[in-house]
């Protein structure tokens, strides 16, 4: 080992001798190996498969971009992409907006006993398997479930239905399950962000005679830029890549109303044995996720630096 030249700032890149640098690689290689074998290789294989017609067993035939053509022309396939985008409304918009409103309302009581208990309770949906959320909600939303029971109590017996079995309500119903899972996380993230806002800002606003709404719009929201971006990123990815909840509660039905890309890939690859088509859809899904996540990241990074 060569000791670093005295007086040289150690944090600078290239500090120390080459030996030290290359020895450091030994620390990276195992992680990189796992990543390469189980992520990078499969990603490149997904690209490759997407160019073939293959049933997973016999020989494959070259298909060029035909599978991609199908993804954008076969209604069963592009509808799944549209459904995923629609789910964003429920998985992202509802938790973020509602979370903001709730966090703003409970900001002042964030340190009470009740709020401490609430912190634990609101986290429960994050901890349990999504499969369990799917089972519990399928039962709540069934025609004889508690949701309908509650609506009947309110005198809304006319709107009761099997929420997950109705073509027009199945997707929103699945979306609400997702919103239930993500609302607690968003609320707490935003609340944590709010606690970092300098109270003096609010005092000053109050002195200027600003109302609660003005306060919210001109102080709270701008200060939470980063937290909001995080919430949006996490929830948008959860929406686009949703699988567990839908697999359990509707299997994509009724009539493809809740079919999403993740489930469609699973069916195509493993039950219809259209590996090429499944892979093309997988590529589109991966690109869609990146296309949604990158701008959000960019947006916050710009604001911070």
């Amino acid at each position: 080992m060569t000791p670093p030249a005295p007086g040289r700032p150690a944090r600078r890149r290239g500090a120390g001798a080459k030996t030290r640098g290359w020895a450091g690689w030994l620390f990276v290689v195992p992680a990189l190996a796992f990543y390469a074998v189980f992520v990078l290789r499969p990603i490149s294989l997904t690209f490759q498969y997407s160019l073939y017609r293959w049933d997973g067993i016999g020989p494959s035939t070259w298909a060029g971009l035909a599978n991609y053509g199908k993804v954008f022309t076969d209604p069963a396939l592009y509808d799944s992409l549209i459904n995923a985008v629609k789910l964003i409304v429920f998985f992202s918009a509802v938790p973020v907006l509602l979370g903001l409103a709730i966090a703003a309302t409970i900001r002042r009581i964030a340190h009470t006993r009740l709020a401490v208990v609430a912190r634990t309770v609101l986290f429960l949906p994050q901890v349990i398997p999504l499969v369990a959320a799917g089972i519990a909600w399928s039962w709540l939303l069934s025609s004889t479930g508690a949701v309908n029971q509650f609506l009947s109590l309110l005198g809304l017996g006319g709107v009761t239905r099997a929420w997950l079995g109705d073509l027009s309500t199945a997707l929103p119903a699945v979306g609400m399950i997702g919103a239930w899972v993500l609302l607690g996380l968003c609320t707490l993230l935003l609340l944590a962000g709010m606690s970092k806002i300098d109270p003096a800002l609010y005092e000053a606003a109050r002195l200027d005679g600003a109302g609660a709404w003005r306060e919210f719009v001109s102080i709270t929201v701008p200060s939470l830029r980063q937290e909001i971006a995080v919430c949006v990123t996490v929830t948008v990815i959860a929406a686009l890549a949703s699988f567990d909840i839908i697999y359990i509660s509707t299997q994509g039905g009724p009539g493809n109303a809740t079919m999403v890309p993740g489930l469609q890939i699973y069916y195509l690859a493993f039950s219809e044995r259209e590996v090429g088509m499944a892979s093309a859809l997988a590529v589109v899904l991966m690109l869609l996720v990146i296309a949604c996540a990158l701008p959000i990241q960019w947006f916050t990074k710009d604001g911070k630096r």
Binding site: G14, K18, G21, W22, G24, W25, F27, V28, L32, Y35, V39, L40, R41, P42, I43, L45, T46, Y49, I237, L240, A241, F243, P261, G262, I265, Y266, A269, V275, A278, S279, A282, V283, L285, M286, V289, I290, A293
Partner: peptide, 25 residues
């Protein structure tokens, strides 16, 4: 380590990966 940054970017690439994207291969 030298070349650490590109390797790090390579890892970041996988941060948003939906598992469905690689499940078939």
């Amino acid at each position: 380590v030298p070349g650490g940054r590109p390797v790090f970017l390579l890892f970041v690439l996988g941060l948003t990966l939906p598992f469905e994207g690689v499940i078939t291969p």
